[in-house]
Amino acid sequence: MANSVILAQLKREQILELLKEGKRLDGRGLEDQRPLSIDVGVIPKANGSARVRLGDTEIVTGVKIQPDKPFPDLGDKGILICTAEILPLADPNAEPGPPSEEVIELARVVDRGIRETEMLDLHQLVLIENKSVIGIFIDSSVTDANGNLFDACSYASVAALLSCTVPKYEIQNEAPVLVEGVTSKPPVKTIPVSVTMARIGDHIIIDPSSDEEACMDARLTITTNTEGNICAIQKGGIDGFTLEQVIRCSEIALSVGTKIRKQLEKLM
């Protein structure tokens, strides 16, 4: 415990020294992302799937689509649920059991990014109003945890959704029945892109590695949509941001987001 604190402190000083020259431990610039690779259709049994590698962080996401009952008061909308889990094999410190507050936050932030950007037109997923709708379940598993799980899970979830096929259901005797062999594209309205930034000292970096996360002062995750709006935010970490810094972060999130969105658009 005490040793790891001292190590983190030493690393922080080293990281801060480099940041003054505009450099990072792994050779990146402050606003450079680690290499992002996206493979879709990796789990054929799912209606949509993706394996995303962001640096050494790896996520596998599957989309399952099935008929369901709508939420009360939301009878005119299909169901969308995002979850995330850090598998025990992903992190020496992860333990099986009830999810930690970090994991719950991860899942909720990924969900919020997709929900608040209104990525999918959920009105198109209604079979019988107030009775039967199509449910879309996006489940992400972190298989290798090496920093910035927020963005990696978000990209994997969006990629799996963009590449999924929606099976067709017909209503027979007021119950949904699968129509074999007929599928459609998901009703995508916009592409959300999450960009997570860390503040270390006075420096703002994007896509923090786990070393950088261990010594960052504060974190800000901003999700933008295709139209250039800001749609979801989550601040974390033990310290805060100035007004100027949060404005700067929104500009970074928009410009970096545009680049990543191009990579995601290819999957449609």
């Binding site: 608040e116 209104e118 709006n229 800001i230 989550q234 601040k235 805060g240 941001f241 949060v246 929104s250």
Partner: peptide, 29 residues
């Protein structure tokens, strides 16, 4: 933190243009 002028919690649910975003943060502060 009003004396240190630091934002310590910030979340957003909903769609804002960049100029609305700036106005919203300022209004919140």
């Amino acid at each position: 933190m009003p004396n240190l002028e630091k934002i310590t919690l910030m979340q957003l649910d909903g769609i804002l243009s960049p100029s609305e975003y700036k106005k919203c943060v300022q209004t919140g502060i």
